[in-house]
């Protein structure tokens, strides 16, 4: 399990995800990766069916906002609901959140 990293513009500090080629705030092309651990859940959904998959188990996903305002779509543990503060992390390439 790794801490989620997002991209921070070296020039204006705007954070973004996924990585952009040019900062849409200041035009810089230089970004550094920084840890982004805290977010608030705005909406959730439960994916109950997956096209082309027969043995699918329902999963919760959510739209979340990091404390620097980056909007992400992440996987969530079952107990998380809208309005919850969560900790973001990465596992096997997936961005996930669990209750803080």
């Amino acid at each position: 399990m790794d801490i989620l990293q997002v991209y921070k513009c070296v020039k204006c500090s705007k954070e973004t995800f996924p990585q952009k080629l040019i900062c849409n705030n200041c035009g810089s092309i230089d970004f550094i990766m920084i840890n982004s651990e805290h977010a608030i859940v705005e909406e959730t959904s439960i994916i109950r069916h997956m096209l082309g998959s027969k043995d699918w188990k329902p999963r919760k996903i959510g739209s979340v906002r990091t404390n620097k305002g980056v909007l992400l779509t992440v996987g969530l543990s079952d107990e998380v609901v809208s309005g919850d503060k969560i900790i973001l992390f990465q596992k096997d390439g997936a961005i996930l959140g669990r209750k803080e």
Partner: peptide, 16 residues
């Protein structure tokens, strides 16, 4: 970034 969380294709995106 979306497929690895099992977002369910466009259904998951537009559900949110």
């Amino acid at each position: 970034h979306l497929s690895p969380i099992g977002h369910g294709g466009p259904n998951g995106v537009y559900a949110l």
